[in-house]
Design a protein around this nucleic acid. Structure first.
Lengths: 133, 133
DNA sequence: CGGCATCCGCAGCGATACTG
DNA sequence: CAGTATCGCTGCGGATGCCG
């Protein structure tokens, strides 16, 4: 961020940022975070369910991403039972729900680009919402 | 993307994607791209000018990012003169302008988070647009 | 079931120096 | 002025195996 020709950096949660975009990208950047948030938009999901929606991610990476999202306050984690098999559910927090418009904007642009290139034309649009494009 | 329990992957420009979010993030993801786009929103800028707005980036990384953005069709590059010192200007393409709403959504969320945490309170909001927060 | 531990390759990124 | 070239590091992310 430039104010009167000066570089202005600022700190938030012990991290340095140089502009507002950096803040958001720190929360949803990387290869997986915003996809996880996208799937959690519709409701709570268990670890295995998220994996099922994202077969490309490894368990390790999903675990890391979920932990990061929880630390950032975007999602909440609830454990049911104390002996394996246990049951863990993830859902958006109130704070996490504030970022939905951003996720939606990102998804919308990508979807429209895909449509313009004929990638998604043979998919009934009404089913996309149902099936979590 | 999951349709009826099946994982559906699709190709666009020789790259594989699994959901619409992946497409957009491929265009604006990473540490620098969306910041460059943010600065180019207001008009054309020269290489050195962008560097001036982003003192944290090295010339090498800026060069790489600009090349990637140009290859993706988001920005246009114009060269004036043929002997050094030459003059190069970068600006959003028509296609690049379609992504402005996404960039704005990202910036808005980050700015609001900063404001809620008192980071930007002493900056006149009317000046933020002028000075390219 | 929902993880964590370990090993490892490679891309991302930085610093510095050089150039048409 | 607007970049390359080179070197080197760091850590993201993948693969595999183990565990309460």
């Amino acid at each position: 961020m430039i104010i009167n020709g000066e570089n202005l950096a600022f700190k938030l949660n012990d991290k340095m940022y140089h502009c507002a975009l950096d803040i958001t990208m720190d929360f949803i950047g990387g290869k997986w975070k915003c996809v996880v948030l996208w799937y959690l938009k519709s409701g709570k999901l268990r670890f295995t369910e998220i994996r099922h929606y994202m077969p490309e991610i490894t368990e390790k990476m999903l675990s890391i991403q979920l932990k990061a999202l929880e630390k950032d306050g975007l999602i909440e984690r609830k454990v049911y039972g104390n002996k394996p098999p246990i049951r863990v559910e993830y859902m958006l927090s109130a704070f996490g729900r504030t970022i939905i418009p951003v996720i939606d904007a990102i998804a919308k642009w990508g979807r429209e680009l895909g449509e313009r290139n004929g990638v998604l034309v043979n998919i009934d649009q009404s089913k996309i919402a149902d099936y979590r494009l």
